[in-house]
Write a protein that binds this DNA or RNA. Structure first.
Length: 740
DNA sequence: TAACAGACTTAGCAGATTTGAC
DNA sequence: GTCAAATCTGCTAAGTCTGTTA
């Protein structure tokens, strides 16, 4: 993505008014330290939320601008009917940054004191019942619980949760969905009391190639031992991929492949260039085609077998509920496909065996059996963690887990809690902003660096940027790990003052490119940080994520760098929805507005995707459809006109009916044309932006649900089945007036 | 306080499945 | 019914953050 992205700077414009207020604020903060102590004892979550929230919302008009110049070709065609995204968004370019208009109540909430997230939880009693034995699975929803309002503080209910009071005698689908959000939660880090599952599903064993599929070396057929042949097939399957042309990939692959060869094979196979995997590749392609060409019955059988596996291994009993497991299959062996310039790409990901597996379940559950003749590495009973199975992978030496599906209680509660933390940030973000602006003037370099980094995290939604071990992963950075080479400073650029140009690779080696005007003090600080440094030196040499997060924790309990991303994403969605949705639009246009609001967030968070391979072609097809529909529309108009003229002359019922019919037909065509045009606009604006990531991970679902309810849009229009399952709690809770 | 391990969330891609036009 | 495009889903890499240890 390029500079077309976002005018992030507009969110933080510094008006004269702001400065005046800011000075006033400085004065009030003279006795800052004493106040800090006092404020520390207060909680951001205090009661005056409604009035201050309202004020805050009025003030906070963070704006984003979508400058998708690339869309012109298609947009131009539709611009008469469909407002391009920029139109509305541009209107409020100024007044972006809420914090310069500092609230004049310094005594409230400045520093959030540790009144733990736990206070937000309804406590689930954790008595000393480690020997606790469930007897049966609870029939879902059999317990009537008083419905709690969306933002009501979870109360400690009198009744203990009937935790796992039954064992899994009847593993049947719940009749109704279990509303875990209406029950109390565990405290003290306990994640469950009863956990039973059937263990993982292993990758099928290697099936040697048929004898007619041959591997050749230096032009001669060569039969490989199954161990070496299997690794060769991994390479053959990727032959069409760009990976196999990369030097590092080839080097790593060959090195690891040789480890699987017999001494004899090793002696012969010394040059990858002389290896011919083509027959193998052709064979696998044919297999893939054969799979696709299977008869209905054959496909049905496969489906049934998958369903059987899912039913057997895809669910666990956690406490008294049958919960879906996210990834019950062990990752099959293959070649490691790192993203970007990964130094380990092509290495052999070895087969995970039962002896590598740690099983986690409760003591009193029926432990999963390892495959015959094998043993688990370990069976443990740790109810302070959420995973069911783990193993250590051989590429990075990191631990992999089997965990529950996002629709599960354990994931849902955490997700809900995440948004509650972001909502708490909303209550003290003005103060935090005031503080870091103050810190730009600090005498201490480390404080200035911390303040400038935090400004970027807040303003540009950058990730924290942990340190990484050199040579172990692709060279990517986040905020704290930015290097001098990643930014350029322009005292003036395109008529704007103090412009910073960011250009670096972030998570997944996705390029972050943005040119943003910043405040003078930030600019001067950056100049200072860069003084006497080489290009590969750290920009923030006195800062790392742990220092930053420690500081944030002091400002608000539970606050870390990533909460800013959640907060800014959600607040942006809410604001954009308010601005973009008009009551007089039809549902199609409203959904376009929703997608645009979602898109604004995706742009902010830099969620990109590769341009779909068939994009240009599909766009041409769509344009052809639009043109055809326009022709149809002209015809319909002409027909209506002549029909009207006819009716004028004849003045009979039949011709009147004919006019009505023509009118209806015309209307239908107009609607169809509009839908097509909306589709074209949406697709064009979306071609390189991934909406799913923000929708799934950053946007408080209650905002979307409330929007749907407010405008009577079926929630199915914005969330598919999986998403509705994940956000069941929000769909149930949020009313049309929900405010993030 | 730095290094490391561990647990968990966030991320894009690719193949599978569904949808819709003809 | 066929085909192409859209959408969904699974997969697993790559982050963040916390807690422990030396």
């Amino acid at each position: 993505m390029s500079e077309d992205q976002i005018d992030g700077g507009s969110r933080f414009n510094d008006s004269h008014k702001h400065k005046e207020k800011y000075k006033d604020k400085e004065h009030k903060h003279k006795d800052h330290k004493k106040e800090k102590e006092r404020e520390k004892s207060k909680h951001c979550n205090s009661d005056h939320k409604d009035s201050s929230d309202k004020k805050h919302r009025d003030k906070e008009k963070e704006k984003m601008k979508h400058k998708d110049g690339s869309a012109d070709k298609y947009k131009d065609k539709h611009k008469e009917k469909i407002k391009p995204l920029d139109v509305k968004v541009k209107k409020e370019k100024e007044n972006g940054f809420a914090s310069p208009q500092v609230k004049s109540e310094p005594e409230d909430n400045f520093y959030h004191s540790p009144k733990n997230e736990k206070s937000l939880k309804r406590e689930r009693d954790v008595d000393n019942d480690s020997e606790f034995k469930p007897k049966k699975i609870k029939i879902e929803n059999d317990k009537k619980v008083k419905k709690r309002k969306p933002d009501e503080e979870p109360k400690k209910t009198k009744n203990k949760r009937e935790v796992a009071d039954g064992k899994k005698k009847a593993k049947k689908e719940p009749e109704e969905k279990w509303k875990w959000w209406e029950e109390e939660r565990y405290t003290d880090g306990v994640k469950w009391k009863f956990l039973e599952h059937n263990g993982p599903v292993f990758a099928p064993p290697y099936e040697p190639l048929p004898s007619n599929v041959k591997f050749s070396y230096d032009g001669k057929h060569m039969k490989l031992r199954p161990e070496a042949e299997e690794v060769a097939t991994f390479f053959a399957k990727m032959l069409d991929h760009e990976y196999t042309t990369k030097d590092i990939f080839r080097k790593n692959f060959f090195k690891d492949w040789r480890k699987e060869m017999s001494p004899e094979e090793k002696g012969k196979l010394t040059d990858l260039k002389k290896c011919d995997f083509n027959e193998m590749s052709v064979y696998f392609k044919a297999q893939s085609e054969a799979r696709k060409a299977k008869t209905k019955d054959q496909k049905l059988k496969i489906k049934e077998e998958n369903e059987r596996l899912l039913q057997e291994y895809g669910f666990c009993i956690m406490d008294n509920h049958r919960e879906r497991i996210a990834n019950f299959r062990i990752e099959p062996p293959g070649l490691f496909r790192g993203r970007g310039d990964h130094p380990k790409m092509g290495m052999l990901k070895r087969r995970t065996k039962p002896r590598d597996i740690i099983i986690n379940c409760s003591k009193d559950s029926k432990h999963p059996e390892p495959p015959p003749g094998t043993k688990w590495k370990e069976v443990r009973h740790d109810n302070k963690v959420t995973w069911l199975v783990s193993w250590t992978e051989n590429i990075q030496g990191s631990i992999k887990y089997i965990m529950l599906n996002p629709s599960s209680r354990i994931k849902g509660e955490k997700d809900w809690q995440k948004y509650e933390t972001a909502r708490r940030l909303k209550k003290c973000v003005d103060r935090i902003r005031t503080q870091y602006r103050e810190d730009w003037k600090s005498k201490e370099m480390r404080i200035r660096q911390r303040a400038v980094a935090l400004y970027f995290i807040d303003k540009l939604a950058l990730r924290a940027g942990n340190e990484k071990e050199e040579g172990e992963t692709a060279d990517t950075v986040g905020c704290c790990s930015l290097r001098v080479e990643h930014i350029k400073l322009y005292p003036e650029n395109d008529g704007q003052e103090f412009v910073v140009e960011f250009d670096f690779l972030g998570k997944d080696s996705i390029r972050y490119y943005n040119k943003v005007p910043v405040e003078k003090r930030v600019f001067k600080n950056l100049q200072l940080f860069m003084e006497n440094k080489e290009t590969d030196d750290d920009l923030f040499d006195r800062l790392n994520t742990s220092v930053l997060n420690k500081h944030l924790q002091e400002l608000m309990d539970g606050l870390t760098a990533k909460v800013f991303r959640t907060y800014n994403a959600s607040i942006t969605l809410q604001q954009q929805l308010k601005q973009l949705t008009s009551a007089d639009e039809n549902d199609t246009a409203k959904i376009l507005s929703y997608n645009r609001a979602n898109r604004a967030v995706a742009i902010l968070c830099n969620h990109q995707r590769a341009l779909p391979k068939t994009f240009e072609k599909s766009m041409q097809n769509l344009q052809a459809k639009i043109d055809a529909k326009k022709d149809q529309l002209s015809d319909a108009k002409r027909e209506l006109k002549s029909s009207k003229a006819d009716a004028k002359v004849r003045r009979d019922e039949k011709s009147k009916r004919s006019v009505e019919a023509k009118k209806k037909a015309l209307q239908r065509i107009e609607e169809q044309l509009m839908k097509l045009e909306v589709q074209a606009t949406d697709r064009e604006e979306n071609k390189q932006i991934a909406l799913g990531t923000s929708k799934l991970n950053y946007l408080d679902p209650r905002i979307s649900v409330a929007w749907c309810k407010k405008w009577s849009i079926p929630v199915e229009k914005i969330y598919n089945k999986t998403q509705r399952e994940k956000f069941a709690w929000a769909i149930d809770m949020a009313e049309d007036d929900y405010e993030f």
